[in-house]
C-alpha cells in the first residue's frame, strides 16, 4: 500500500490530506474531510449520488482516486452556497418540490450546476441527458428537470 500527502482546494479551502493509494475521492471527502453531503450509493460509478465538481467537471467521486486530486479544485454540495446564499439550483429544487428522500439530491445539484456552467441555456433534452447519470427513485425526475430549467431562466435574467 502506498501513502501520499496531497494538496487540493475543496469548496474554496486549501487542504493538505494524507491518504492511502487506494482511497477514492469519495472516501477522502467523507472520511478525511467530514464532508458527508456527498453520498455513496453504489461505489461503482453507476448511480451518480457521489457526483462532485473536479476542476469544473462533474465526476463520480467513487471512481476517482484521491491521489489523482493533488492540485485539483473540488466543489461538493456543501460548497454550492456562497456567503450563506444558496445556489440558484438549490433554491429551485426547494421551490419546485424536487426533493423527497434527498439522497440523490447532492449529486443532482452538482450535475445541474456543471450543466449550467457549460451550457447556460440548455434544452429540455439536454437537461434530461445531463441528469441521466443521477438515479432518483423518489421524485420521478420531472420536478428536478423543471427546477433546472427555471434555474437556467433565472441565471439568464441575472446575467442579462
Amino acid at each position: 500500500m502506498s501513502y501520499h500527502r496531497i494538496t487540493l482546494k475543496v469548496n474554496g479551502s486549501l487542504e493538505v490530506v494524507d491518504i492511502s493509494g487506494n482511497m477514492t475521492l469519495l472516501q477522502m471527502l467523507r472520511e478525511k474531510l467530514a464532508l458527508t453531503g456527498t453520498k455513496n450509493g453504489c461505489a461503482s460509478g453507476e448511480c451518480g449520488a457521489c457526483t462532485v465538481l473536479m476542476n469544473g467537471d462533474a465526476v463520480n467521486s467513487c471512481m476517482v482516486l484521491a491521489a489523482e486530486c493533488d492540485g485539483a479544485e473540488i466543489i461538493t454540495v456543501e460548497g454550492l452556497a456562497k456567503n450563506g446564499e444558496m445556489d440558484v439550483v438549490q433554491k429551485t429544487l426547494v421551490d419546485l418540490g424536487a426533493v423527497q428522500c434527498g439522497f440523490c439530491t447532492p449529486g443532482v445539484l452538482i450535475s445541474a450546476r456543471a450543466l449550467l456552467n457549460r451550457n447556460p441555456h440548455p434544452t429540455e433534452f439536454e437537461i434530461r441527458d445531463a441528469l441521466s447519470g443521477n438515479l432518483c427513485r423518489c421524485t420521478g425526475y420531472n420536478r428536478i428537470v423543471e427546477a433546472v430549467k427555471v434555474a437556467a431562466e433565472i441565471e439568464g435574467q441575472e446575467g442579462a
Partner: peptide, 10 residues
C-alpha cells in the same frame, strides 16, 4: 426537511 437536504447537511 428540505433546507438540510439541499445543502448536504442532512
Amino acid at each position: 426537511d428540505v433546507q438540510e437536504k439541499v445543502t448536504g447537511a442532512a
